[in-house]
C-alpha cells in the first residue's frame, strides 16, 4: 500500500518556506534529533511536570517554578507513579567477562537515568492528573538506584503532550526557542567526537570512495594525514582516534576556532588551502 502527500496542505511537514534551505525539510535533514542538528526533541520533556523544569536528558530537577517546590531543586527523580525512572547498569567490564554492576567513582550506585520518552510513556495518558513522584530526599549529584532509601514524595501534575485534538505539541510544554536550544555542533564538537563513519551521507567523513579491487574500499577519510587523493592506498597513514590526548589529533577547540583550516574544502577531489 502506498500513500504519498502531493499538494501543500497534504505535505505540510514537507513544506519548505520561501528562503529556507533544503536541510529544513525532514526528508533532507540529517534528522538526528538527539540532541539534534535541526531541533533537540529532548526539550519537550523539561516541563512535563507542572511547576518543575527538569534537565532534558537527566532525572535532575533544574529549577522549581513555584515556591512550594523549591525543596526539590537539585534532587533526582527516582519513581513516577510507581514506575522506575532509573535503572542499574550491568555489563561486562572486559570482553567476554561476567555481567557486573558498572559502578564508577563518580557513579558509585551504578545507576542511570532512563531517557524521558520511554520512562514517561506509561504516565502520559494521565495528563491533567496528579501522580506520586519520588525524589532523593536531598540534592544529589550522583545518580541513585531505584531502591535508594533516603527519598521524599511529591504529588505532581502531568502536562498534556498535544494541544487537544491536534498533532501540535502543547504550547505550555515548550516555549519559543526551547526546541532549538542545545543543538549539537556537527562541524566542531561532534565531528571530533564521532570521528569514524558516524555521519550520514549528507555529512560524509569518507569521500571519493571506490572499490579498490581487493574487496575493500579506497577513498579519502578525513583522518588521513595528507588527504591527497593520489597517495597510494598502501602509503596512506591516519591520525589515531585518541579521545583523551588531543595533541595527537584535533581538539574541539581547533575545530571551533579554525575549522576551515583544519578541515578545509574538497574541491576537484583535492583538499584546498
Amino acid at each position: 500500500m502506498s500513500l504519498k502527500p502531493a499538494n501543500k496542505t497534504a505535505r505540510q511537514l514537507l513544506h519548505r518556506s520561501v528562503g529556507n534551505p533544503p536541510s529544513t525539510l525532514p526528508d533532507s535533514a540529517i534528522s538526528n534529533c538527539f540532541p539534534g542538528l535541526e531541533f533537540d526533541f529532548r526539550n519537550v520533556w523539561r516541563r512535563i511536570f507542572v511547576g518543575l523544569i527538569m534537565h532534558e536528558a537527566d532525572n535532575y530537577v533544574l529549577k522549581a517554578e513555584t515556591a512550594g517546590l523549591k525543596h526539590l531543586e537539585g534532587c533526582r527523580l527516582l519513581h513516577i507513579d510507581g514506575h522506575d525512572a532509573t535503572t542499574i547498569v550491568r555489563g561486562p567490564r572486559q570482553s567476554g567477562g561476567p555481567n557486573v554492576e558498572l559502578a564508577t567513582p563518580s557513579n558509585p550506585d551504578a545507576a542511570w537515568f532512563m531517557e524521558w520518552s520511554n520512562s514517561l510513556t506509561r504516565v502520559l495518558h494521565k495528563a491533567g492528573q496528579k501522580v506520586e513522584c519520588i525524589f532523593t530526599a536531598t540534592p544529589s549529584d550522583p545518580q541513585r538506584r531505584p531502591d535508594y532509601k533516603e527519598t521524599q514524595s511529591q504529588m505532581l501534575e502531568i502536562r498534556r503532550f498535544f494541544e487537544p485534538g491536534t498533532p501540535v505539541i502543547a504550547r505550555e510544554l515548550v516555549e519559543p526557542g526551547d526546541l532549538t536550544q542545545s543543538l549539537c555542533s556537527p562541524w566542531q564538537n561532534d565531528y571530533r567526537e564521532c570521528a569514524c563513519y558516524y555521519w550520514a551521507s549528507s555529512r560524509p567523513d569518507y569521500v571519493n570512495v571506490a572499490p579498490d579491487g581487493d574487496g575493500l574500499s579506497a577513498g579519502q577519510n578525513w583522518m588521513q594525514r595528507d588527504r591527497k587523493p593520489d597517495t597510494p592506498v598502501s602509503e596512506r597513514t591516519y591520525y589515531p582516534d585518541n579521545r583523551t590526548n588531543f595533541n595527537i589529533f584535533l581538539s574541539y577547540d581547533d575545530l571551533f576556532r579554525q575549522w576551515q583550516e583544519v578541515l578545509r574544502f574538497i574541491v576537484g577531489g583535492y583538499d584546498r588551502e
Binding site: 502506498s2 502527500p5 497534504a10
Partner: peptide, 17 residues
C-alpha cells in the same frame, strides 16, 4: 489520486489502496 476535502489535501495512492 485521493482528494480529502478537509484542508483540500491531495495524495497519490497505489492501485490497492
Amino acid at each position: 489520486q485521493l482528494f480529502v476535502p478537509n484542508g483540500s489535501q491531495l495524495y497519490d495512492v497505489d492501485a490497492a489502496l
